[in-house]
Computed example of a mutant assay.
Amino acid sequence: MSTTTFHKDTWELYKSLEMSKQLTAGETLARLGNDHPEIVAMSSDLSKPTRLWDFGKEFPDRFFNFGLAEKNMVTAAAGLASTGKIPFVSTYASFLGVLAAENIRTAVAYPNLNVRLIGTHTGIAMGFYGSSHHATEDISITRAMANMTVISPADGVALSEMVEESVKTYEGPIYFRVSRGREEPVYERKENVVQNKIGKANVLKQGTDLTIIACGIEVNESLKAAQQLEEQGISTRVIDMHTIKPMDTEAVLNAAKETGAILTVEEHNVQGGLGSAVAEVLMESGVSCKFKRHGFYDEYSLIGKPYYLYQHYKLDGKGIASVAKEFLG
């Protein structure tokens, strides 16, 4: 595997604008736009960094820019959904899943409307912009909202496939949580083959000693960690739990029974995130195993360039492998 995900140049704005290949929602919606006139898209002065402009330039009459008014944008999306449209709302996750949380809860989740919320640049991807631009609480916020589906795709293929599913067959509000779009892909696009389905986890690697359950960009880093652990004699299963709510409980319980140890990995506070969701499944099922959550340990990130921060917080492949070894003893 290459090491481009955390390469320093991908955080240099002018060097990396053309590198956001994994932000595929806009191009997917543009492809679906003619057959699905109910699709509309909304942004808040960030249509190019989120790549929602890929849809906007093809369908300018169905694209709306709200400026720096994210809360108004969410409420307007709810209004459009109430008329039968399927609005796709995209901005940075700190401004969507965190800042606009009350509007999402009251205007979108409560009436159970078909609004698709895409929070990009989540976690600490905006590291040097400061805590106001970080989003390490958005999983816990949105998964606590009744009716809300919460998805953290591993890459652009996964995002595209589940965005398309959300247009064609899925009912109810969805919060998609994605990074900067400049990461290494996990999935290879295959013609007429869907590899990611909402609510169904993907076992990307089998193993017998440990299961790593990850979401978002940490899926690829967990695969790197698993490779390093294998070289040290630790057979490691890796599960891409892209849908955090509703969770694939069967995948979790099989992992607990078959490997006896689960490590969850997320670019999020361990309080209320992916790890907490997995723990809830285990406790309510009565299935016991060795268990650890890894992410941000109820703390705010330091301010700095993310490629240093991922190493510092052991959220890169090497760091995850070291956490796993310590966990297993």
Score class of each variant (00 low, 15 high):
Thr10Cys: 00
Leu13His: 04
Tyr14Ala: 10
Lys15Leu: 13
Lys15Pro: 04
Ser16Met: 04
Leu17Ala: 09
Glu18Ser: 13
Leu23Gly: 05
Thr24Pro: 06
Gly26Lys: 04
Gly26Glu: 08
Leu29Asn: 06
Pro37Arg: 09
Ile39Ala: 00
Val40Ser: 02
Val40Gly: 00
Ala41Gly: 12
Lys48Pro: 05
Lys48Ile: 14
Phe55Tyr: 15
Gly56Tyr: 05
Glu58Thr: 12
Arg62Pro: 04
Asn65Pro: 02
Phe66Met: 08
Gly67Asn: 02
Gly67Gln: 04
Leu68Gly: 05
Ala69Gly: 06
Ala69Thr: 13
Thr75Lys: 05
Ala76Lys: 03
Ala76Pro: 07
Leu80Thr: 08
Ala81Asp: 14
Ser82Ile: 08
Gly84Asp: 03
Gly84Pro: 00
Lys85Gln: 14
Lys85Gly: 12
Ile86Gly: 02
Phe88Ser: 02
Ser90Tyr: 03
Tyr92Gln: 07
Ser94Tyr: 09
Phe95Ala: 00
Leu99Trp: 11
Ala100Cys: 08
Glu102His: 12
Thr106Val: 15
Ala107Gly: 07
Pro111Val: 00
Asn114Asp: 14
Gly130Ser: 08
His133Gln: 11
His134Lys: 04
Ala135Glu: 03
Arg143Gln: 01
Arg143Lys: 10
Ala146Cys: 00
Met148Ser: 12
Met148Gly: 14
Val150Asn: 01
Pro153Glu: 01
Pro153Gln: 04
Asp155Glu: 07
Gly156Ile: 07
Gly156Val: 05
Leu159Ala: 04
Leu159Arg: 06
Ser160Pro: 10
Met162Phe: 07
Glu165Asp: 04
Val167Gln: 06
Thr169Trp: 01
Tyr170Gly: 04
Glu171Pro: 01
Pro173Phe: 09
Ile174Ser: 01
Ile174Tyr: 05
Arg177Met: 11
Arg182Met: 06
Glu183Asn: 10
Glu184Asp: 15
Glu184Thr: 14
Val186Leu: 14
Tyr187Leu: 11
Tyr187Asn: 09
Glu191Phe: 13
Gln195Leu: 15
Lys197Ser: 13
Asn202Trp: 11
Val203Ile: 15
Leu210Gln: 10
Leu210His: 10
Thr211Phe: 04
Ile212Gly: 12
Ile213Lys: 01
Cys215Val: 02
Gly216Glu: 11
Gly216Phe: 09
Glu218Ile: 06
Glu218Gln: 15
Val219Asp: 06
Val219Ile: 11
Ala226Pro: 06
Glu231Lys: 15
Gln232Trp: 02
Thr236Arg: 10
Arg237Met: 00
Asp240Gln: 08
Thr243Gln: 02
Thr243Arg: 04
Glu250Phe: 06
Glu250Arg: 12
Leu253Val: 05
Lys257Asp: 13
Thr259Pro: 02
Ile262Gln: 03
Thr264Cys: 02
Glu267Lys: 12
Glu267Asn: 15
Gly272Cys: 01
Gly272Trp: 00
Ala277His: 02
Ala277Cys: 07
Ala279Val: 09
Ala279Asn: 07
Glu280Cys: 00
Val281Leu: 05
Met283Ile: 13
Gly286Val: 03
Val287His: 10
Val287Ser: 08
Val287Arg: 05
Lys290His: 09
Lys290Ala: 14
Arg293Gln: 12
Arg293Glu: 07
Gly295Val: 12
Tyr297Glu: 14
Ser301Val: 07
Lys305Asp: 12
Lys305Tyr: 13
Leu309Met: 14
Tyr313Gln: 00
Val323Thr: 12
Val323Gln: 11
Lys325Thr: 15
Gly329Cys: 00
